[in-house]
Design a binder for these strands. Structure first.
Lengths: 335, 335
DNA sequence: ATGTACGATTGAATCGTTTCAAAGCGTAGT
DNA sequence: ACTACGCTTTGAAACGATTCAATCGTACAT
């Protein structure tokens, strides 16, 4: 049924070795022969079997990327960046969505390891990096994405979430807000707790300022809406005068609930700032302020570090890259 | 370096065949032996080599999905649906992003064919299905996604775009609008031209109504903004009183340009309706009406049809599934 | 005519898993 | 004591591309 190099070789009256050379080192083959083999390939409709190539090569030509949530445009953008950079290197990116679920994360790790991926980019779910250490020890380079690795452990690309949280809260405080609600969760996720930590520090610097945590089960639009319903239902006296959402999806949900359901005005009754600065933040019902992260760059850099580690022998090559987040002001936090 | 079944076999003092059976048909192996092999695997840190499995099996255990634009939440949702359904079957989805670019589409087809994917889901760029026919003839089932296939050619899952376009325009007309601008492109893309066709039909039914086409280079937020700038710059006399955007990304861009730049009121000065009903439509600066498509269901169904075709011998199994789109009314088209 | 050198071509060996016909082993029945 | 049968285990063959040491041919110098 399937056409193999052997068939092509027979049709072109050459050996299998020559067919392989035509495919991989055409310069080593006489032009006339190349021609002949190529037309045999065309005629028979031969298609290389990647599994066989990989088996021989020992490694696949793709890299695995495990993200927390594909529906979050931030991660889509990271993936795009990674894909772009990988494509330039002739590599493919396999995208896995853990959905912040340990079991699925583990399943993807198994899958990618069985595939003998060239390397692994991952936004790990928890602090337990033992599994990743093992993977690396067995020869698969690993780069942490959107999470700073402890020095001497892994290469990583991250954005300083504590700084970002600080920026966000500071901005709200500068606008005169004093009762800040932090909406986000689960708090076990590092990105979330770091942002909260940053916000706490900013609040601590201002006398009379307070921060309250409104935990969510996940950082999604739906959960944001739920949190918004709760806030909106409070009496004005109990209500915070500003909300810092742990990401933009939450912010969108909050916005929806506060305005459409609660008839509250943003920013007059409640200021709002999000995190990630996804494209949709600028077009929201009230365009909202956000903390921008260089998502695509994160992806690209991650691939760079991966390739670097894959080529460099020793693991002295480990590098922790940290980008600085940036405040983007919009209507939701105007005076 | 790498641990193979052979090493495991040696460590457990059994043959390679037995190791393989422990992995794939544990019921065929004596419990005590299973135990012994398993602990050898654990001890040596053996990880199956997927390339070798695939080579032997002749097919990979993943299906390829090629979409027009990963940044469009509509496609993200289709992908999620497909992934979900595939996972239930023990299959992986490889996501390829053609970016509406023929060359990249072709590259992904080549890649997936070399990978011997279980099947291919694709939102094809153009009408030229010859490449896909060839693929199928060589044994890879193909299902068209979000595009109705000519009968007797392929299985397909689609949403009736002509009906959707009709719904959208009809809604605007019922709201009293008479000068409608259709913003979208490239018109060579079937989804776009079908939606336009539907809109034209609705307009033709109403005396005194007219439709104008404002072509865009791609259906993105940026292009929407560009189109919006152009519309907003016109004199009120030349301006349409309603815009039908070929998708929600365009609608978001339009909204931004019309309101923030043009100081136009939506819907008073110009009504707006989009297409896809992505999550963000409800939270837009003016929540906008849209035509909803069952994106995740599209993905799930596509996988179903694929598996059906893959199992059923003949190709009599071809089925064209067409879903009906649905109007979702929001503020952007209120009276 | 002989030898040398070099580019082109060959084909067996290899990668790691799965399959399957055959062999092995133990027990029960005669 | 021998056969039969069922359950386990065995190990060689196969999947298809790539590699590399060995061979082949040819052109050129001597």
């Amino acid at each position: 049924m399937t056409v193999s190099v052997r068939d092509v070789a027979a049709a072109a009256s050459v050996s299998v070795g020559t067919v392989s050379n035509v495919l991989n080192h055409p310069d080593k083959v006489a032009p006339a022969t190349v021609e002949r083999v190529l037309s045999a390939i065309e005629e028979l409709g031969f298609v290389r079997n990647d599994a066989a190539r990989q088996l021989r090569a020992g490694r696949s030509r793709s890299i695995g990327l495990v993200v927390l949530d594909v529906r979050n445009p931030f991660f889509t953008e990271v993936a795009r960046g990674a894909e772009e950079r990988a494509a330039a290197e002739g590599l493919t990116v396999l995208l896995g969505n853990s959905g912040a679920n340990s079991a699925r994360e583990a399943a993807y790790l198994d899958l990618f390891e069985e595939q003998r991926v060239h390397g692994l980019l991952i936004t790990p779910l928890n602090e337990e990096l033992a599994r990743l250490e093992r993977l690396r020890r067995r020869g698969t380079p690993v780069v942490l994405v959107d999470r700073q690795a402890p020095p001497r452990s892994f290469s990583s690309v991250a954005v300083d979430d504590v700084a970002g949280g600080f920026l966000a809260a500071q901005h709200l405080l500068e606008r005169g807000r004093r009762r800040i609600a932090f909406v986000g969760g689960p708090l076990g996720i590092r990105q979330v707790s770091d942002r909260l930590e940053g916000a706490r520090r900013a609040v601590a610097e201002v006398a009379g300022a307070a921060i309250e945590v409104v935990p969510t089960e996940s950082p999604t639009v739906l959960e944001g809406r739920t949190a918004g319903e709760a806030l909106q239902a409070r009496t004005p006296a109990e209500r915070p005068d500003a909300v810092f959402a742990a990401n933009d999806l939450l912010a969108m949900g909050l916005l929806q609930a506060l305005m459409l359901r609660g008839k509250l005005r943003v920013p007059e009754d409640m200021a709002l700032i999000g995190y990630d600065d996804i494209d949709f933040a600028a077009t929201a019902i009230v365009p909202f302020s956000s903390i921008r992260q260089p998502a695509a760059l994160l992806g690209q850099t991650a691939v760079d570090l991966l390739l670097q580690e894959a080529s460099g022998r020793g693991m002295k090559e480990l590098r922790q890259v940290v980008f600085r987040p940036e405040l983007v002001e919009r209507a939701s936090t105007q005076a």
